[in-house]
Design a protein around this nucleic acid. Structure first.
Length: 657
RNA sequence: GUCCCCAUAGCUCAGUUGGAUAGAGCAUCAGACUUCUAAUCUGAGGGCCGCAGGUUCGAAUCCUGCUGGGGACGCCA
């Protein structure tokens, strides 16, 4: 209905342009509506610059001519040239009527489209390592993944949500080592009152601490000052190189930096070769690959502890998956295809038996992507036949395509892995998979702490833990709820305080553009006032409260088709109606741009508009019954759009708060 | 060294395909609750959109260079 309205509008304006300017150069698709900056200018506008270029005329002239001799139309009140713009004012009552009828009829389906019909898309997200609990960085990943999945689904795509569990590798064996060596007495996480993923994460931190102590002792024995190998020292040196004016001095410093790096690498290599703990972990890895039953048994035990912990966090965050892949199960397929590529002459083998893809090959298949990059050859399989990170990703990608016949395959993974995915996709193209160009890395920036608070490092246990964060915010929401008078039934307090906490967290995180780093201050956690999730929920809850009061007062629910929409003529109310119109278009844009922030900011702006409507134009105290009816319908439509938008973000909207 | 991302109000951030006077929130100041939920609203102040060129009728947005911040360039994942 809305589409039909817009398409009619487009045709009328197109005809007007063609007739008035006596041209056939303008196609229907050239008529693109925008929202004017001021509402009193009209509901839609068309900038005339492109037509001016096409016709060799002044844009003001084009707009002026286009506005002349308009015969009128049932949808359009008037068209008007303002400078180089043609502004369209519609009949507002009809505009409001079509919108409200549409929303109230479609309800949860309002905004749904079928633009993705027949297209099979997989979104892989979360993809945790099974050696530590989820922290705020994973939360960002999970929220982006879920929101994208919901939105693609809503736009008619056949969408599969997948999760690749990184359950093998040296880091897993580090936790495993600590468990076997130092804590074999622990029967289960429950037995010591801990969540499984937290317990295994504790093992991991313990390992890294032990390794650090061992490294320091080793350095001391060798008379080496480790501070020289610290990242900050190199950073400081780089700064001095930049600041150096004298070229001789500069070169000297450059040499020092290079030497430092060599020394540092050499030291680390030597240390690891002599490290009791690291070697023990490596030994576990080898035994794991050889399927040593004892190691596998313990690995499986810890794996189950961690996964149970993840599932709990996923349940709270609302993450769902249609398909779970495990690195331990896909790396074999990756190996097969690497060997296949070797046989077909796409890859090559070095003397030590390792298999590689050459930089030149990569460059040839994706010259744009690797432009100017002094790319190195990339190892695909170790000499001893064991796999590396990219091996399993090759296998997983192929498995996905085989199982689901995908047109698009989206990877929600941190932007630090950009080169890895560029390489992966190029390799898939080299192997000749027709679906390879449909792969896309939906990258997002790091979550950082404010200046002076250091960095988030799960290795050192300084990460902001996802469970702790949610629990803390839930407590604060509960406090806020009970501060004045509690409007929520006692038995719902737990659930609603959690819903509010999650709304705050999700809106806060999804508001920031994916590619940007996100600064997170754990000491302040997240606010509940202003541009926040709870503010959106609050708008919804207030509307529901109006409906409850209306029912208490035995006010009959109006039939939306009988309402006099011309009564909704205040600037605030009409601004709200204009904004509600935008919703379906916003959703579609996100499948093109991956910019979830569009939806978040839309909902914030919408509820801000609604808040002023709420204070200035009361529903139940409206001057007349017919005005009250119109406002009830508008409130209903607003609540529905808030509900639908928040659902796509994975946020619940409570009836009371 | 090379490549990628980022730089917008004191702070945190929006700004879709280049379009009319660059917007929110927080913080500051001044107002509004016997009223459908004040987790709210109304108003004020606050900007060389990092710097310098270029393309264009038009640039926060595109191109080039520079500065600053982050990341990547592992037989780690």
């Amino acid at each position: 209905m809305i589409d039909a309205y817009l398409s009619e509008l487009q045709q009328v304006i197109h005809r007007q342009f063609c007739q008035q300017l006596q041209t056939q150069a303008i196609s229907l698709g050239d008529i693109k509506f925008q929202a004017p900056p001021q509402p009193d200018l009209g509901e839609f506008c068309i900038p005339c610059f492109p037509f001016a270029k096409m016709l060799g005329k002044n844009p003001n002239e084009v707009a002026r001519l286009a506005a002349q001799n308009f015969v009128g139309h049932p949808y359009i009140q008037e068209i008007q040239a303002v400078g180089p713009y043609l502004n369209v004012k519609v009949h507002r009552d009809q505009f409001a009527r079509i919108l409200c009828l549409n929303i109230l009829q479609k309800q949860q389906e309002f905004g749904r489209s079928n633009e993705g019909q027949g297209v099979r898309v997989m979104i892989e997200y979360s993809s945790p390592n099974t050696n530590k609990p989820l922290h705020i960085g994973h939360v960002r990943n999970n929220l982006i993944g879920m929101a994208l999945a919901n939105i693609f689904e809503f736009c008619g795509y056949a969408l599969i949500k997948s999760n690749l569990i990184n359950d093998r590798g040296i880091h897993i064996c580090k936790s495993l080592f600590v468990y076997r060596k130092w804590h074999p007495e622990i029967e289960s996480p429950e037995s010591i009152g801990m969540k499984g993923d937290h317990l295994v994460g504790k093992f991991y931190v313990e390992f890294e601490n032990a390794l650090r102590n061992e490294r320091e002792a080793y350095a001391q024995k060798k008379g080496i000052d480790l501070r020289r190998f610290h990242k900050d020292y190199a950073k400081d040196l780089k700064q001095r190189i930049r600041d150096a004016k004298d070229p001789v001095e500069k070169q000297k410093l450059n040499q020092e930096l290079q030497q430092l790096q060599q020394e540092s690498d050499a030291f680390e290599e030597e240390f690891l070769a002599n490290s009791e703990y690291y070697q023990a972990a490596m030994e576990l890895l080898r035994r794991w690959e050889q399927e040593d039953p004892e190691v596998r048994r313990d690995w499986q035990k810890l794996d189950q502890w961690v996964i149970a912990g993840f599932q709990e966090t996923y349940r709270i965050l609302g993450c769902k998956f249609d398909k779970i892949y495990r690195e331990s199960q896909t790396y074999m397929l990756g190996k097969e295809h690497v060997l296949d590529g070797l046989n077909r002459g796409i890859f090559y083998r070095k003397e030590d038996g390792s298999i590689w893809v050459s930089a030149q090959r990569l460059m040839e298949i994706d010259p744009e992507g690797f432009k100017g990059f002094p790319l190195k050859d990339k190892v695909l399989l170790r000499g001893d036949g064991t796999s590396v990170y990219i091996t399993q990703d090759i296998g997983t990608a192929i498995l996905k395509a085989q199982e689901y016949n995908l047109q698009r395959s989206i990877y929600v993974v941190a932007s630090e892995q950009a080169l890895h995915f560029k390489t992966l996709f190029a390799i898939l193209k080299l192997l000749g998979f027709a679906w390879a160009p449909g792969c896309y890395h939906a990258a997002y920036g790091m979550v950082t702490l404010p200046k002076g608070m250091g960095k988030i490092k799960s290795r050192e246990g300084t990460a902001v833990d996802a469970d702790d964060l949610i629990a803390e915010m839930k407590e604060r929401a509960k406090e806020k709820m009970t501060e004045e008078n509690l409007r929520v039934p006692e038995e719902q307090v737990e659930q609603i305080s959690l819903d509010i906490a999650l709304a705050a967290l999700k809106v806060f995180i999804l508001q920031v553009s994916n590619e940007k780093d996100l600064q997170f201050d754990p000491t302040q956690t997240i606010a509940f006032t202003g541009d926040t999730g709870p503010a959106i929920q609050y708008s919804y809850a207030r509307i529901q409260s109006i409906f409850r009061k209306a029912a208490e007062q035995n006010i009959p629910w109006p039939a939306e088709s009988q309402v006099d929409y011309s009564l909704l003529k205040s600037p605030e109310e009409f601004a709200l109606i204009r904004q509600l119109w935008e919703f379906p278009e916003i959703i579609k844009t996100i499948t093109r741009t991956y910019n979830i922030g569009l939806l978040v900011n839309y909902l914030l702006a919408l509820t801000k508009t609604y808040a002023s409507v709420y204070t200035e134009h009361p529903v139940l105290r409206a001057e007349t019954e017919s005005l009250r009816a119109a406002r009830l319908i508008l409130a209903k439509a607003t609540a529905q759009v808030i509900h639908n938008g928040m659902a796509l973000l994975g946020v619940q909207v409570p009836e009371r708060m």
